[in-house]
């Protein structure tokens, strides 16, 4: 507490709804109380234990792997169907319209915001990155969109549908779709 606050004239700030954040740490318990009378067991409080669950997968990107190799080399790759003339910004190796195998094409590195949001909360894995901005990107001559993060803005008020944005790449690839991200075009 700042020294000046003590004894100052400001009205007291008191929040009856104040609450400590719940944490997943606790005390190890060995002795569990137990009644002599078995009929009392139905009134017993439930026992709740902590159960960690951690898995490392050997996850393959399979046929989509070239997309990630592209990002590592500062190239944005999509796929296109020769028969339907339909181009996918998020790659798929078989055309959803006709089933034919698609081919890899390089996408433009400038696009527009099709829609957006700013996430102030998120999954546990990304909570530390909040607030972050998501955009669905549309590209000229490309039929589908691409999900990406937008940086270089502070809040939703700085983002507009239709605004031009430009792709940038992480120098040290993580082999994740976040290796590419977007910034407002100059």
């Amino acid at each position: 507490m700042a020294k000046n606050d003590i004894g100052s004239k400001r009205s007291p700030r008191r929040n009856p709804a104040a609450k400590l954040e719940e944490v997943m740490t606790g005390t190890t318990v060995f002795g569990i109380p137990f009644p002599k009378d078995l009929n009392a067991l139905k009134n017993m409080s439930p026992i709740v234990i902590k159960h960690p669950y951690y898995v490392e997968y050997v996850h393959s990107y399979g046929q989509d792997s070239p997309f990630f190799a592209g990002l590592a080399n500062k190239k944005l790759l999509g796929t296109t169907c020769g028969r339907c003339k339909y181009t996918y910004a998020t790659p798929r190796m078989h055309c959803t319209k006709c089933g034919k195998e698609t081919k890899w094409v390089e996408l433009p590195q400038e696009g527009r915001v099709h829609t957006f949001t700013t996430c102030y909360f998120g999954s546990e894995e990304f909570l530390k990155e909040t607030p972050f901005h998501l955009v669905l990107v549309e590209f000229d001559g490309v039929d589908t969109l691409m999900l990406a993060r937008l940086i270089g803005v502070e809040g939703p008020g700085d983002i507009e549908i239709g605004m031009k944005i430009r792709a940038k790449f992480r120098r040290n690839s993580q082999l994740k779709p976040t290796d590419v991200y977007f910034v407002p075009a100059g």
Binding site: D64, T90, T117, C119, F121, G122, S123, E125, F126, L134, L147, A148, R149, K176, P177, T178
Partner: peptide, 11 residues
Amino acid sequence: FDYPVGGFYSG
């Protein structure tokens, strides 16, 4: 393609 970028249904 989606979970690593957004990972949040409300988003």
